[in-house]
Nucleic acid binder design. Structure first.
Length: 695
DNA sequence: CAGTGAGCGAGCTTCCGCTTGACTT
């Protein structure tokens, strides 16, 4: 029996099923070796030679692999077809001392019988260049992270961290906050005309002022923000009085229909899900955090017991950057569409999507149902409500991706006014732009399109061209330009991904890290930087700009590709990054220690009457007396930034010891009942009061 | 995740990327 090694136990099961009796399949559970956590683990003097240690969790699996290794003529390393997968395979051969002539590398993009069998027909040797590209990536990240973090411990506070990915994530949030602060909102007016045409009583049409003579009234402004180009459209009417005068002039004109244009429009379905897109949609439509989405997706991937049958994996792998779909799955999806909806709902040709993600490694398929015939409703009773909702999203999105386009009829009506008394223009064009759905296509299934601003109108009335219309009324609608929105978890991930920063397996953890370090806070699901975040970001931008540059990762990836292609040694890539890093470190080594300025609050110290300060400590913000160290008073702050109210006596008695119960508040600001005999009696009970539930 | 929970407030911290359970925040 030959041995096949993969990295995921679920992949192990699927492959074992496909390969049958002749192969023994085992999984590594991810990486098995890494640099040590407690020290640098890289010998910079000796060409960056790494010190690898076996991960604790891998000890057992390695011991087992060693046992079953003997007398295997061939060992197939079937880890993912990407940089990390190649490295895992290499570490396995190193740790298990597998001889080169024994080790065969096989790769595939989909876990289907034809793909796996084809892979076994074409085994190859380990690609040491690709392994070296991974080593360069790993060592570079270690050097950046483990050199910058201690610098921050010395200059700001212990326990802080910095890194190629997290520090850019924080910077995005900081820069956005500046962009919002500097944005000057502008009031502007849109002028609406209500026109009547046809036989009395007539039909009504509502159109917006579009042009005065040849000049359009709307214009677009574009802001070059840190990570994105921000565009806003507004009209040139900003003065309320002038708008009122304009309306007076407009109402003196004679109006007629100058253009009626009808043309077809269409919209294509979105591609099947990749990790980041699933996280975004689950946040938008289901209000799941990326972390939650990944945890539920993991359950769907690992498998659910559907009745008496054994566990069955409902979706393909959920950490992917590829929109590729197995031909078999496309075929069964298309058959399902034709059967359930009719062949008119099928796209004319098979839709092939292109992966747009920068630096995508495309080791897996898109996220899709493993069997489209398991429609969400039919298995609903076996799923938790959350599993059901996420599965439904994935299933629907996949099927929609092979469905026909939605088609529309677009209508543009222009009404021109002339013969005005007063005003410095001779014609004014009002315009109505509407569309009606002709054929739903994929939108029959993918109903999210409506929420994406795809508003359909009922039948729009069509006046005849050149017919006269009467102006019934004009009005000015006031609008204000909006600053760019703060990031939420999903949009932050989207932006990082657009710049090739982070990987599907790290998107959710990145968010957790920057919150854990207290660089940023989530309030009402929006990110804001903390004072600490602002301070650390300032230091990094000032002294280590090249690291927190949006292009840093992109440049690194380009170099790593050259390593993978054998065009340059991996040590050169590391050296070229480490040199400026060390120079910056030595230049910044004598900068003054920075402090997060404590905020003076309006509250007074109950002990000595001095003002209280809001300070950041190891466990978050707390209130401290400004007379420290003479007065050592401190108080906790709950998660909404307020000190908790003092405990309150209630009329209720403790069911355990009979002492009166106190109403207290926990660290989140939530009230609960606790025994006043604490710590002798530790009874507590939740208050099931709607008032205390902030969500 | 669900449900806990009450204080602590300058000493051994930290990176990114693969993978799952463990388990008390």
């Amino acid at each position: 029996m030959n041995l096949v090694i993969v990295e995921s136990p679920t992949k192990q099961k699927s492959i074992a099923k496909i390969l049958g009796q002749d192969y023994l399949v085992r999984s590594t559970y991810g990486h098995i070796r890494d640099l040590p956590t407690s020290r640098l683990g890289v010998n910079v003097e000796d060409n960056f030679s790494p010190e690898y240690v076996v991960l604790g969790r891998a000890k057992k699996i390695i011991a087992e692999l060693k046992k079953i290794l003997a007398d295997r003529p061939k060992i197939y390393l079937a880890t993912d077809y990407d940089r990390e997968g190649e490295a895992i395979a290499w570490h396995v051969t190193e740790v298990l001392k597998i001889k080169p002539e024994q080790a065969w590398r096989i790769t595939f993009h989909e876990i289907t019988p034809p793909a796996i069998k084809a892979a076994l027909q074409n085994p190859r040797k380990l690609d040491i260049n690709l392994v070296n590209a991974q080593q360069a990536r790993r060592i570079l990240d270690r050097l950046v992270g483990y050199r910058l973090s201690p610098f921050l411990w010395r200059k700001v506070r212990r326990g802080l961290s910095a890194g190629r990915v997290q520090s850019v994530a924080v910077r995005l949030i900081v820069e956005r906050e500046k962009e919002i602060a500097e944005f000057v909102p502008q009031d502007y007016y849109q002028i609406i005309g209500n026109f009547v045409f046809g036989q009395v009583p007539g039909q009504k049409i509502r159109a917006t002022l579009y042009r005065l003579d040849e000049e359009k009234v709307e214009f677009q402004q574009s802001f070059n923000f840190f990570a994105t180009e921000y565009k806003i459209t507004q009209t040139k009417f900003t003065d309320e009085k002038k708008v009122a005068e304009l309306i007076k002039i407009l109402s003196t004109g004679n109006y007629s229909v100058s253009k009626v244009e009808e043309k077809p429009g269409k919209r294509n379905p979105p591609p099947p899900y990749i990790t980041s897109q699933l996280q975004q949609d689950a946040a938008r439509y289901l209000h799941f955090s990326p972390k939650r989405t990944m945890s539920i997706a993991q359950q769907l991937y690992e498998g659910i017991s559907l009745g008496p049958q054994e566990q069955v994996g409902l979706i393909t792998y959920h950490r992917t950057d590829s929109v590729y779909v197995s031909p078999l799955a496309i075929e069964s999806g298309r058959r399902y569409i034709a059967e359930k909806f009719g062949s008119q709902y099928l796209s004319e040709n098979i839709r092939h999507y292109r992966t747009r993600v920068k630096g995508a490694q495309e080791a897996h398929e898109a996220i899709r149902p493993t069997d489209v015939r398991r429609d969400p409703e039919s298995i609903k009773k076996y799923l938790t409500p959350e599993q059901f909702k996420l599965y439904q999203l994935i299933w629907t999105r996949f099927l929609a991706s092979q469905m026909a386009s939605a088609t529309y009829q677009q209508l543009i009506v222009e009404i021109t006014g002339r013969d005005f008394s007063g005003g410095d223009f001779s014609s004014a064009v009002f315009r109505l732009h509407g569309q009606t759905l002709v054929f739903a296509g994929f939108r029959r299934l993918w109903t999210m399109a409506e929420e994406e601003g795809e508003k359909d109108q009922a039948e729009i009335v069509r006046p005849a061209e050149n017919s006269r219309v009467s102006a019934e009324s004009f009005l000015a609608e006031k609008h204000t330009t909006n600053p760019p929105p703060r990031y939420n978890e999903a949009s932050l991930i989207k932006t990082l991904e657009e710049h090739g920063i982070g990987r599907p397996s790290t998107y959710a953890p990145i968010v957790s890290t920057i919150i854990l370090r207290r660089y940023v806070q989530l309030a009402e699901r929006k990110f804001r930087p903390t004072k600490l975040g602002l301070l650390v970001n300032d230091i990094l931008v000032k002294h280590f700009n090249f690291v927190v540059d949006l292009q840093f990762t992109a440049r690194m990836e380009k170099e790593l590709d050259e390593v993978a292609d054998g065009k340059q040694p991996w040590t050169r890539v590391v050296r070229e990054t480490v040199q400026p890093l060390e120079e910056s470190l030595s230049q910044a080594k004598d900068i003054a220690r920075q402090k997060v300025t404590a905020e003076v609050t309006t509250a007074r110290c109950p002990k000595c009457g001095a003002p209280l300060l809001r300070k950041e400590g190891r466990w978050g913000e707390f209130l401290a007396c400004s007379a420290y160290p003479e007065c050592r008073y401190t108080a906790r702050i709950n998660s909404s930034g307020q000190p908790n109210p003092a405990p309150e006596m209630t009329a209720e008695k403790c069911p355990k010891c009979g002492a009166p119960l106190l109403k207290r508040h926990n660290w989140r600001g939530r009230a609960f009942l606790a025994c006043s005999a604490y710590p002798d009696c530790r009874y507590t009970r939740s208050i099931k009061d709607a008032q205390d539930k902030l969500s």
